[in-house]
Structure formats: C-alpha cells, structure tokens
C-alpha cells in the first residue's frame, strides 16, 4: 500500500510529456476559437512608449523604423510592428523611413506590416519609403549615421533616391527625430545602441520579444531607451491604445490560459516532489 502511494507521488512528478503537450494545444487553441475577451490593462511601460512616440513624432518630424526580426518572430513581433507603424502613419506631416541593417528579412516584413495598416492617404516616396536591407550590420549602421546619401542610393524597389522626396535634406542621423527599433535578437538593439544612440543621442523607442524584455530593462532605466513595448502583451496593450485590436488582442486569451496551465504543471510537480519526499523520509 505504502509503495503504491509512493508510486502515485512519483508518477505525479513524471507525467508523460505527451499529455502535457496535448493539454497545451487544447488550452491555446480553445481561446483562439472561442475568445474569452479578458480585459487588457495598459501597463505604464507601454503607455510611456506610446506617449513618447506621440511626443517625438510631431508635424515635420522624420522617423526611422527598423524591422530587425525574422519571419519566425512574426506572431509576437508582428502585432507590435503593425500597431506602432499604424500609430505613426496616423500622424500628419511626418516622413517615415522603413529599413533593416541587421536582418535581411526586414524589408519583406516591413512590406507585410504595411499590408495590415491603413496608410491614411500617405504616398510612397513622398511620405514614406522602404529603403530595404543594408548588409554589414554595425558597419552599415555607422555609415548610415554619418552619411545617409553616401550609403543610400536607391530604395528597396530600385528607385533612385533622387526621385524620392521623402529622403530630401537628410544628411546624417542628426536629421532624424525618432527611431523605432523593432528587434528580436542580434544584430539588433545592441548594435544600434553603439552606432546610433550613444554617439548621436537619437531618441529611441523599442519593441521586442518577451524574452528580450528583461535584458532591455537596464536601457530603459538608464534612459537610452525612452520606451519599450515587450512581447505579445505589449502588442495587445499598444493595439488597445491606438484603438485597433488585432492579433495580439486575440492571442492574449491564449496567453492567459497557457500560463495558468504551466503554473498548474509546476504546482503538480512540486506537490508530487514534496509528498514523495515526505513519504520516503517517513518510512525508513
């Protein structure tokens, strides 16, 4: 009898992971099919990022958005990219430059982002431009920062820069008012920090994966990042702030249920561990 009970506690610590995987599939899929519509509260971090974007993208400003993530990150970074890009596209009389210097997939993901937003009557070439990917990571960033016309000869579609009025008068990074850095790894924020933020003091607002959030916090504390939108939660909050619910909002219900399930797994495992330990300790 004692060994049967011990066996039960040991089994509780060693549940077949296929059962765990099936449960994960169920708790993630169900809220996507039948939304729970749990309320999303906007945290101070995302609100700060939103307000800083508002503050530094006034009429006449020039904004760069760098899409430094890969296709695999789209489910988490896509909502952030769409929400922040949409926020900027709603601003009157600003110039928006989309580019990538660390990730060659950046320009394609920038195009993907534009498919999801309302361009609010902005004209390509006059109000916004996709400059494409510049190979060389830090070297390209340094070149761009010091001499934009020297590096940028044409846009992503091959149009010479002289034909794009959005780029007129831009000589170096001092002519840029705001930089949105959407990154998922390396090359990413670290490189822009060294080549753009530190030497030029450019205002930077970041958007990144949940897993990068803790690592980026020191830069928010030091003021090198004026704001930071983190993960699917941050994307959902930003969607709420711009009043355009999207994929993040619908995905957050699944985040809630899956997190609860993982916590339940952890509790089960610990219950089994402590009960099993007490049993074997009490029956010497």
């Amino acid at each position: 009898m004692a060994s049967a009970k011990e066996g039960f506690w040991n089994k509780l610590q060693a549940i077949d992971q296929r059962i765990l995987y099936v449960l994960i599939i169920v708790v993630v899929a169900l809220p996507l099919l039948r939304p729970l519509s749990l309320p999303i509260t906007v945290t101070s971090a995302t609100r700060t990022a939103y307000e800083k974007v508002d503050e530094y993208s006034g009429p006449g400003s020039v904004v760069i958005i760098a899409y430094e993530f890969i296709a695999g990150n789209w489910p988490e970074m896509g909502p952030i990219a769409v929400a922040m890009t949409q926020h900027l596209f709603r601003k009157p009389d600003i110039r928006i430059i989309l580019l990538a210097m660390g990730r060659d997939q950046g320009p394609i993901l920038a195009e993907n982002t534009l498919k999801y937003i309302d361009e609010m009557g902005k004209e390509y070439g006059e109000d916004y431009v996709n400059l494409g990917f510049f190979a060389g990571a830090e070297a390209a960033m340094a070149s761009f920062a010091s001499d934009i016309p020297g590096l940028v000869k044409k846009d992503y579609y091959g149009t010479p820069i002289e034909q794009l009025s959005v780029m007129s008068g831009l000589n170096d990074l001092n002519d840029i008012d705001l930089f949105l850095c959407l990154w998922s790894g390396t090359p990413g924020w670290g490189e822009y920090l060294r080549q753009w933020q530190t030497p030029y003091g450019i205002t930077v607002i970041g958007g990144t994966l949940g897993i990068n959030g803790p690592g980026a916090q020191p830069y928010v504390s030091s003021g090198q990042l004026k704001g930071l939108v983190v993960g699917l939660r941050g994307g959902g909050e930003y969607e709420k702030l711009i009043g355009k619910p999207g994929e993040a909002t619908s995905g957050l219900d699944a985040v809630s249920t899956s997190h609860l399930l993982i916590i339940a797994f952890i509790v089960l495992g610990n219950v089994g561990y402590f009960a099993g330990r007490r049993r074997s300790g009490g029956e010497v």
């Binding site: 990571a137 830090e138 390396t186 090359p187």
Partner: peptide, 9 residues
C-alpha cells in the same frame, strides 16, 4: 551558436 565571426557575439 549563432554569432558570426564579425558580429558583436
């Protein structure tokens, strides 16, 4: 790992 020989990693 991922870091190329000319990157910060």
């Amino acid at each position: 790992g991922l870091a190329t020989l000319y990157s910060s990693g």
